[in-house]
């Protein structure tokens, strides 16, 4: 339900931690759930599952390509495997395996990429997954999920397990603001309107959902009415919600912690172009790799804060006139 009350946005758990929690819960109810990891189980939070279900945890060592294809074999034989690693390794080192052994035969593997985006921080660009949404969305038949907070992650991991077909789930390293209340229900492929607005719609995924809410509140003070929509599912994309927002507010900003090339923004733009063309602005990483620093410093330097979303909103509202 849309709400016009001020969002508290209290700091919650990291989405990777929420994934680990959901995986253990799934393991307790479904004996077909299997987890694979590539020597990062303490970081991806599959360690909890490994501890409780050692027989159903497969340590693959530092060999992500092999991990993905082993997962595909398990899925082909009827298991529901969750293969986890840093997103940059699962998607880049495992991409050909995701293509040929997972997407092409459409097997029921769930890939969980943690430490996505630049908010991994000090480890720097070799560990920063800024192409993963683009890569995952390019795979025919894949469902691509990017939860904004711990509540969304837990529910969407459970929905991913119930969904038959390949799924990529994007998780982050740092603790993030809680956008949702416990008990919130989700549906794969159905975006969630968090704030109603009439001048512009702020669409976002992951970390940028909370930033977009903060931006909307700042814009409200300036007399700009901004709606906010969480696209926790990037593929399949909620085309109806996009068309409605374009019709009703006439301007769209899309924000994501990902390269602008190939991310949520360009996918939304395609729908807008097809269904109801309106001015758009894009907040994301612009054709570059980041660097080592604290997550906060990086989000500031690379322009992924509420301030940047609000600035884009002002520009796009100007373009309407």
């Amino acid at each position: 339900m849309p709400t016009q009350t001020k969002y508290a946005l209290p700091l919650g758990a990291a989405t990777r931690e929420a994934f680990g929690k959901a995986l253990v819960e799934l393991g307790r109810t479904n004996p077909n759930i299997v987890a694979l990891d590539a020597d990062l189980s303490k970081s991806t939070y599959t360690a909890g599952f490994a501890k409780e279900f050692p027989d159903r945890f497969i340590e693959c060592g530092i060999a992500e390509a092999n991990m993905i294809a082993i997962g595909a074999g398990l899925a082909s034989a009827g298991k529901i495997p969750f293969a986890a690693s840093f997103s940059v390794f699962a998607m880049n080192k495992g991409f050909e395996q995701l293509r040929v052994t997972v997407a092409y035969p459409s097997v029921n593997l769930k890939v969980v990429g943690t430490h996505s985006g630049i908010s991994i921080g000090e480890d720097g660009p070799s560990q920063m997954s800024v192409e993963d949404l683009s890569l995952a969305c390019s795979l025919p038949g894949f469902t691509v999920i990017s939860p904004a907070d711990e509540i969304a992650m837990i529910e969407l991991v459970k929905l991913a397990a119930a969904h038959v077909g390949p799924v990529f789930i994007r998780a982050g390293r740092p603790k993030v603001a809680r956008v949702y209340e416990a008990g919130r229900t989700f549906k794969i492929g159905e975006s969630i309107e968090l704030l109603e607005g009439s001048d512009v719609t702020l669409m976002a995924t992951g970390l940028l959902v909370a930033e977009s809410i903060r931006a909307a509140e700042a814009l409200e003070a300036e007399g700009i009415s901004a709606g906010v929509i969480d696209f926790h599912t990037i593929k399949p994309l909620d085309r109806e919600a996009i068309a409605r927002a374009a019709r009703e507010t006439g301007a769209i900003v899309v924000s994501e912690e990902h390269l602008v090339d190939g991310g949520l923004g360009v996918r939304v733009a395609q729908v807008v172009a097809e269904m109801h063309p309106v001015p758009m602005e894009f907040v994301g990483i612009q054709n570059t790799y980041a660097e080592s620093a604290t997550p906060e410093q990086l989000l500031d330097k690379y322009g992924l804060l509420a301030r940047d979303v609000a600035a884009a909103a002002r520009r796009v509202v100007q373009r309407k006139r």
Partner: peptide, 8 residues
């Protein structure tokens, strides 16, 4: 790798 998965 697929064979490993099926055997596991």
């Amino acid at each position: 790798s697929l064979g490993i998965g099926m055997s596991l």
